[in-house]
Simulated assay, not measured.
Amino acid sequence: MTHPATVTRVTEIPVKDASTVMLLRDGTAGVEVFLQRRVGGMEFAGGMTVFPGGRVDLTDADSAIEWAGPPVSWWAERFATDDARAVASVCAAVRETFEECGVLLAGPTSDTVVADTSDYREARTQLENHELTFANFLASEKLVLRADLLRPWANWITPVGEKRRYDTRFFAAVVPHGQIADGATSEADTVVWQTPADALAQWKSGGNVLLPPTWTQLTSLSGFATTADVLAAEPEITTILPLMHKVDGTLRIDFPDDEGYYEAGPHPWA
């Protein structure tokens, strides 16, 4: 089910699939989430604070990828999509997390996960530069993709009127023991671990810029005490298509439960 919105007649922009991962760990103050501030000059969400993620590649749907976890049909049902898009979305989530912060949700067997990804530094660069497919990387290193380490969380579509539009599926995952999330990506100039509450407080004071989907997921995560609680949750996933329009000359994006978003005052993206 898609959240209803009034669609303004504009030049049709193709909607591309994307995956985003809320990478979590347990900190002294509670659940912490890994956040990146995208490089300011980027064409989409430049300067915004976001979770790791990106566009789904055609090769992410490669049937040769060895998979551990719930069957494809389960993922397709949770995200209300077909099997091919479900496979591609899950694989893109794992690939993008590895490319953007060096965390790899894969292991030598279906019940293990690599503890140190430094040996794959060259492959990580090749993946980011599209010189290597994720399926070939996993096969050459004899690794199994650990889909069971991911949890489906949300689904948002970029509003009509944006120059680039994505159908983004959000996932939650906990950083495997021994692995370190870093900022070694060309797409981000700052990375940080924060509790969702701290990230929201920083946003409210003008210290970062959060788009509605990021704000909404941080708000939902702030209600959990531990990562185990997050992984045990089964949120209802309704496809959200926000409405972008102007009110008295000011850009506004309407989405479910958006009152708190605008209580904080004007937003720089507007």
Rank of each mutant, 00 (worst) to 15 (best):
T226D: 11
T28R: 11
P256Q: 07
V39A: 05
T214H: 05
V174R: 15
V191Q: 12
R38L: 14
V56L: 00
G206H: 07
G265H: 13
G47D: 03
R151T: 06
F79G: 05
D257V: 11
A154Q: 14
R252N: 04
P152T: 03
D254I: 00
D17G: 15
L132W: 04
A29V: 12
I13Y: 06
T219V: 00
A147Q: 00
E66T: 06
L243A: 10
E66K: 03
Q202E: 15
E187R: 12
E96S: 02
F224G: 11
V114G: 07
T125P: 01
D116F: 10
C91I: 07
T81D: 07
G53L: 03
L104M: 10
T125M: 08
P152W: 02
T6I: 12
R55G: 06
G265M: 11
M244E: 09
A64K: 08
L251D: 11
F98E: 04
E141S: 09
L35H: 02
V191S: 10
F170M: 09
V21H: 01
A93F: 04
P108D: 03
P235A: 13
V103R: 08
K16A: 15
A135M: 04
E187L: 11
A233R: 13
V192H: 10
D257Y: 05
A64L: 01
R124D: 06
S222N: 13
V56K: 00
Q194C: 07
R38C: 08
D111S: 15
T8I: 14
A228N: 13
T250G: 05
P213E: 14
T195L: 08
R164G: 04
I157D: 03
H130Y: 13
T20S: 15
R169S: 12
W269S: 08
A61G: 15
V174H: 02
Q194I: 04
